[in-house]
């Protein structure tokens, strides 16, 4: 076996080892959101509770927090309290809007869910999942923040709890509500 062959084998094995090691700390279910930094799709649908039509057009020029949820989703229950808290914190700001989008659900179940866990901000129906596909959603809960210009500035996959909550409110919502051109932390860098 020549020296070159030996070195080649060692290099290949080492490269594999480091790749595998790196791979261990990644989340195989995580998909980088391609939509962050692009214009948010227009979304419209009936209100979950009243059935009245709703549209993102009516929120134009505001900072919109969009939360995808479903009554069958366990992690949504975990974050629900925080969502209510978040809405309470920002609801008085004239340029803040929060919309829940009810995903892959049955309306009576969704209504029961909201009655049980509380409801303060409006929720839109997405029974056929078309809105979710428009937002590149692949599971619930997922949360998006759209700035005043209508550009998606932030996405979070998973429940809004602990650090994620702090990051979302302090580093994303507050600066976006203050100034239009604020640089927000990239989507996946929770503190």
């Amino acid at each position: 076996m020549t020296r070159t062959t030996q070195i080649t084998i060692l290099v290949v094995l080492f490269a594999l080892l480091s790749l595998f090691y790196q791979g261990l700390w990644g989340d195989p279910r995580h998909i980088p959101p391609v939509l962050v930094g692009t214009r948010a799709p227009v979304f419209e649908g009936p209100d979950v509770e009243s059935g009245e039509p709703m549209s993102s057009e009516q929120y134009k020029g505001k900072v919109i927090l969009v939360n995808f949820w479903a009554s069958w989703c366990q992690e949504c229950k975990v974050e629900h309290e925080n969502l209510l808290r978040l809405y309470d914190e920002f609801k008085d700001h004239p340029e803040f809007v929060m919309v829940g989008i009810n995903y892959q659900d049955e309306i009576p179940k969704a209504r029961a869910y909201l009655q049980r866990y509380g409801s303060s901000f409006p929720h839109m129906q997405d029974v056929k999942g078309a809105l979710a596909i428009d937002f590149g959603v692949y599971g619930v809960p997922e949360t998006f923040v759209i700035d005043k210009q209508g550009v998606i500035r932030h996405k979070w996959i998973g429940p809004i709890v602990d650090n994620v909550y702090t990051n979302l409110t302090k580093n994303v919502l507050t600066p976006l509500l203050q100034r239009a051109d604020t640089q927000v932390r990239p989507y996946d860098q929770a503190p």
Binding site: F20, G23, L24, W25, P28, R29
Partner: peptide
Amino acid sequence: SGVLTSVHTFATDP
């Protein structure tokens, strides 16, 4: 180990 997602991958645990 969970480095790959697959139909059969067992639980992930670093």
